[in-house]
């Protein structure tokens, strides 16, 4: 049912094939800056490889971190969208429908990983981010980036299967840190990461809440009908009571007043 991708950071060689495949499949324009490692996501760059210079056994080491939309199980962006332009599909990808988009950009603010980007230079801009090659996924193919990885760093499959695979890997090999990034972060994501270097040293947002973000909003919005109804009833009651009181007061004053 729900698909996912496991990124094994110990295997990534930083070749950049995935980002080229992404550009080609999605017909995204190239620019000089977006080719460089470590450049950020933007409207035309849906996946990047960041390079982290770290220490491994007291020796300097490089790690390459593929970054793209993590496709949360309960996406904050989709819950924040008041026109339902963003939604989580049952196959896994969080996809965008431009025909519904108003362009409020609340999704960009809501995303815990700052993934959605905007076409600032267009008169009618779109929100842009990795769609997990949704059409390929619907047809049983892997996303374009996964299909070209020559190093075996990306594994596509059933979310349950790749999660089990990740557990097996980190428990079987002492080299891995005992943490699957994306298993619990933001309530769980379709993309999972395993690594031999602690994630906080690789630029991951490790302090992100593990409670699904939409739940924060729901706990408040859920109160709205009750608050609205009781407050409305109270206001009506007070209005009627005070109007009657003022009328009575006026009648008592009547003989003296005009």
């Amino acid at each position: 049912m729900s698909k996912g991708v496991l990124v094994d950071l110990t295997k990534c060689i930083g070749c950049g094939s995935c980002s080229v495949a992404c550009k080609m499949w999605n017909a995204l324009p190239y620019s000089q800056t977006s080719q460089q490692q470590g450049s950020n996501l933007d409207a035309d760059t849906w996946t990047v490889i960041n390079r982290a210079e770290v220490k491994k056994d007291n020796e300097p080491a490089w790690r390459f971190i593929k970054y793209q939309c993590l496709h949360c199980d309960e996406p904050a962006c989709a819950s924040a969208c008041f026109s339902k332009a963003l939604k989580k599909t049952k196959e896994g990808p969080v996809v965008y429908d431009v025909s519904l988009c108003v362009g409020c950009r609340y999704c960009m603010l809501a995303c815990p990983f700052n993934v959605p980007k905007y076409e600032w230079d267009k008169a009618f801009p779109e929100v842009r981010k990795c769609q997990m090659c949704a059409n390929r996924v619907y047809n049983g193919d892997s996303p374009a980036c996964v299909s070209v990885c020559p190093a075996g760093a990306l594994t596509y499959g059933e979310h349950k299967t790749i999660l089990a695979m990740a557990r097996e890997k980190i428990n079987g090999d002492g080299g891995y840190v005992k943490h699957i990034f994306g298993e619990k972060e933001a309530g769980g994501t379709s993309w999972l990461y395993i690594s031999d270097i602690p994630f906080e040293n690789l630029g991951f947002r490790t302090n992100v809440t593990t409670k699904p973000l939409p739940e924060y909003t729901e706990s408040i919005l859920g109160l709205t009908p009750a608050v609205g109804l009781s407050w409305g009833a109270l206001l009506t009651g007070m209005y009627v009571y005070n109007r009657r009181r003022n009328e009575i007061a006026k009648e008592k004053e009547k003989p003296g007043n005009k």
Partner: peptide, 25 residues
């Protein structure tokens, strides 16, 4: 401020009630 202003009426029919912005709107 909205990027696709011709779509301003969408939330009225899309019914995106999980968004706080929906209530605000």
């Amino acid at each position: 401020d909205i990027g696709r202003w011709f779509n301003f009426w969408r939330p009225f029919v899309s019914w995106g009630y999980t968004s706080v912005l929906f209530e605000v709107f």
